[in-house]
Write a protein that binds this DNA or RNA. Structure first.
Lengths: 341, 341
DNA sequence: TTGTAGGCGTTATCAG
DNA sequence: CTGATAACGCCTACAA
């Protein structure tokens, strides 16, 4: 409750002198400072961030968007590390994080939401559905709001993104399968809109081509990062291509249900058939068999995103550049040499 | 950039009329309204939440505390559902969530942080270390800031908490073990400061007493919800009480490492020895063997916490009451009848 | 070194 | 129905 004004009255000094003191300006008499500080402490003063933000046009807050409801990024294990990293980095630099959750304003645009709340910057953690709001993303990209997206290729004067090297990662996965002797490798991809889905598919295709294995469209299906879809597609693939020896699923969660599905069909992984995932989420170690997969460096993605955002906020001039982080092959138990070798 | 003032100038009406219009007051001439709305749209007007908050003393923001660094609640699977639920509930009621992460102000007290940011209420998600800041918790509890804590017994005029019925849950766990024929049941508890640790320990003890099995202090150790500690204690227990047939660990994470530890000692779970957990975190289904445990209804805890907080914010009068939610026994594979039966 | 005055964008009170 | 005018709490020239 104690305001700068009350301290001024109590101390006998003016509001501005009190303000200067509290903000550690140097041009304040030592004794004056002492007295004011003393009184401030007595009155248990704390600055009102809202008032300060209003005049300074700086909130020391960065906004964060997740998908809404069903598809909340918060519920996806992949985003956890990212949030954690962003939080750490932002915290160190004196920022708090505002989670945009107000459903009352669902008709509002991302940009408007940011402006209303006057956040200093924003990080986008949108999954599936969220990425479809392309007009909104365009608007944000063209606004001057500092922004870093995860896995969404936004590019603007103050806007960029962080991603994994999905292409190389996928390629590595397939190369590994090939190195183990697999020749008929099924692909359960993501969707047709997200860049990461596209890149992983290209990686799969190019690996096959470079190994002169040819590319059979009948081996490729889209799973939309959905567990039920993934199972359906696995069934479809198996029905049409019974000689498949390995599945490359573009997410660990899909890989997991595919393994369960195969088991239910009486096939053992990896003895009868191999399965590879992508992401390396925490649970992957617990899957049975433990999942061989491609690790995305999630924490690093978050750290980078935060740093770039901070940099963009601090410096009007520099235009942020996209960052692509390397993936890593994690060999565990779900891939083995195919039977006939 | 467009402010209410600019709209006033452009439209020829006064600031107050514009404000009333924008806020859907009824006492505005239809034509006036139309014109103003038109211009507002043209100028792409959006209200400045900061300015509004300043005058209304209401930010439509609720604060959220997590532990700091190493012990961040964000990193603990248990809290995820809670956050998710709080987010859902708060969003529906028009609130955004502010994650307190600013490390620059680590010397500040919880209460001060809330006041500075003028959050309308706060939910506490503190783990281990965080709970030790008792003076701060007392201060918050005695402040008039609407507050709901998870698993921390705060009680004040505008402050309360939500927890699971840990006592009954633990009792149920032990009763189940007993029903399976176990007589020498080791206990790996939490810490000596948290209520939930205490309650679970009491549940364990009472279940033994009520079954007239007696209570051997040598069977009880504290694991502090730490993986390494849990393993150490399991080793200690086994060394001193080789006839143990079951371990009851008060968290799934501890149960998991205990299982791994037992395996490394050449003991199979549950054939040679049984293990029970507590929490039912997502990963528990993936443990091998799949973990038998006590489920906390995490999502419901979050929902309740949010509702109570909202209620407390809206109504100065009602004093919030603590809520204790029932647990649920989840039988999977990690418990079997002991060998000698 | 200190004080005065204006303003940040809104809401709210009170005349007219 | 509309318009001054005064807050909200703080910062920041500019003056003194």
């Amino acid at each position: 409750m104690a305001s700068i004004k009350e301290i001024a009255e109590r101390s006998g000094f003016s509001i501005s002198t009190v303000s200067r003191t509290l903000n550690n300006y140097t041009d304040v008499n030592a004794k004056t400072r002492e007295k004011i500080m003393q009184i401030a402490k007595e009155m248990n003063y704390y600055p009102n961030a809202v008032a300060r933000s209003l005049v300074q046009k700086k909130t020391h807050t960065i906004g964060m968007f997740f998908g809404n409801k069903e598809n909340s990024a918060l519920d996806h294990p992949f985003f956890l590390d990212i949030v954690s990293a962003v939080r750490e980095e932002m915290g160190n630099q004196g920022y708090d994080i505002l989670l945009f959750t107000n459903k009352t304003k669902e008709h509002s645009t991302l940009t408007t939401l940011c402006r209303e709340r006057s956040v200093d910057g924003v990080v986008l953690l949108l999954s599936g559905e969220g990425k479809k709001r392309t007009e909104q993303l365009d608007e944000l990209q063209d606004s001057n709001i500092p922004c870093v997206a995860i896995d969404i290729p936004l590019v603007g004067d103050r806007c960029t993104y962080v991603e994994s090297d999905n292409y190389t990662g996928a390629k590595e996965a397939v190369n590994y399968l090939i190195s183990q002797g697999h020749r008929t490798i099924a692909f359960i991809g993501g969707d047709e809109i997200s860049k990461q889905s596209f890149d992983r598919m290209r990686g799969y295709q190019d690996a096959l081509m470079e190994n002169k294995l040819g590319m059979d469209p009948m081996l490729m299906r889209l799973g939309y990062f959905s567990k039920t879809r993934a199972v359906e597609e696995a069934g479809y693939l198996l029905a049409h291509k019974p000689n498949i020896t390995a599945f490359f699923c573009v997410s660990d969660q899909m890989a997991n249900v595919v393994i369960e599905f195969l088991n239910s069909r009486g096939m053992n992984v990896p003895e009868d058939i191999s399965v590879m995932g992508f992401d390396d989420i925490k649970e992957a170690v617990y899957f049975r068999p433990r999942l061989t997969t491609i690790r995305q460096n999630k924490y690093e993605m978050g750290t980078q995103a935060a740093r770039i955002l901070l940099q963009t906020i601090d410096d009007e001039a520099t235009r942020p550049e996209p960052v692509t982080l390397p993936c890593e092959l994690v060999i565990r138990e779900s891939v083995a040499k195919p039977r006939h070798i």
